[in-house]
Design a protein around this nucleic acid. Structure first.
Lengths: 215, 215
DNA sequence: CCGCCCTGTGTGACTTTGTCACCCTGCCTT
DNA sequence: AAGGCAGGGTGACAAAGTCACACAGGGCGG
């Protein structure tokens, strides 16, 4: 699906929030938005750079993460279709520097709105403000939960929860490194714990694949 | 200073942000706010309870923290005079349940605005929205920084930075437990590291007191 | 004034997690 | 066929969290 436009209808499918409320908003948004297609693994934001635009995700996933500076990473959250990255918005509204990195996971399509247009929209439409406020709240909640997990959680539980959440039909195709980068730990730790799970017959391991024995 | 009212002028001293912009706002805020005085160590928010009002801090400090459920705690941030707790605001705006605990550190005075009145103010005044958006951004930044520290930081560095930040004239009157609760670690860890610092002549320790030798 | 108690602190032993330094395997390329 | 490389395994040690006590000193009731 390579296109360079999107209809009001398909936009409303993905962002149903805007169905209620002033219908002219959607027109305004589409008028100032630029449609973008990105391949897998494309950097979308860089720590330390200013944010010049806000992205409304149409399809695919944008992973927001932080780097440790010496090889480790941690995923803060994912932004999926119908969502927008709150740190991105917050960065624009406060005219500050981006604190995190963002990268596409798989192919991504999005509507990009310039910082100026976004400030304009938010000043003019109550609905846009509420949309952002709602996103902020739910995002805040997930960040606090992550912080709590990192501060107090045990790695084995966090890993097992991760497997349950990410696997489909008891299967998860990924690498240990990828998991470590999501959880904010080291690859060796993930490998060790997975091996331990295998000894307890909770999983079966092979290259690029983890199978849960009782999903 | 025990009073049950506050003048527009003193309000503007503490919240200079509202000096520019529509002057009627301050009147509106004061009209719907209730003045409150709280003693030290008073619970101001409880995890799991709904937020019924927003607090504008006038004096003192409100500590926002999370508990692990088995004895440990971590301080997310402090809210001082001229600030308002963003999680509090976010909770009201999204009509959700409070995720964190808040407690007064020392005597506190504040203006309390009911959830309804706050929603009203934010709907009507651009300035109020900007005030909140700005607070959100800076608060977000501090939470992300904390998360990064917790995920990747070394405890000895975090502790030393804490001592530098919290001490006045090279002195810090507090208990090891208090420090541990701020940093999100165990008391024993703090005690051990401080002892280590003492062996290296970086600090002198006595009951309820830590002195930096080269502040 | 004495003994008790309670808060704050010190410490050893053990577990969990992170780090470092390798190694092996199987697949892909040349 | 040889070499390179991504993914994974492992041992050894360091850093941090947990558990179980021990001890000190200040305050207080008797």
């Amino acid at each position: 699906m390579t296109m360079d436009k999107i209809s009001e209808n398909s936009f409303l499918q993905i962002f149903p929030y805007f169905k209620k409320g002033n219908p002219e908003i959607v027109g305004e948004i589409l008028a100032c938005a630029r449609y973008e297609n990105l391949p897998d693994n494309t950097m979308m934001q860089l720590e330390g750079e200013p944010c010049d635009s806000l992205g409304l995700m149409l399809s695919g996933v944008k992973r927001i993460y932080k780097s440790s500076g010496n090889g480790r990473e941690i995923t803060l959250y994912d932004v999926g279709p119908g969502e927008t990255c709150i740190l991105n918005a917050s960065c624009i509204l406060s005219n500050s520097i981006c604190q995190v990195n963002a990268i596409s996971v798989g192919k991504v399509s999005l509507l990009s709105i310039s910082a100026r247009d976004f400030r304009n929209l938010i000043a003019r439409y109550e609905e846009v403000r509420t949309f952002i406020f709602t996103a902020i709240s739910s995002n805040y909640a997930s960040i606090i939960e992550l912080l709590q997990e990192v501060a107090f959680g045990k790695m084995d539980e966090r890993l097992y929860d991760y497997l349950l959440e990410k696997s489909e039909g008891g299967r998860l195709e990924t690498t240990h490194q990828r998991i470590a980068d999501d959880l904010g730990t080291a690859r060796e730790v993930v490998s060790r714990l997975l091996k331990e799970f295998e000894r307890r017959n909770q999983v079966r391991l092979s290259r690029n694949l983890i199978e849960l024995t009782r999903p």
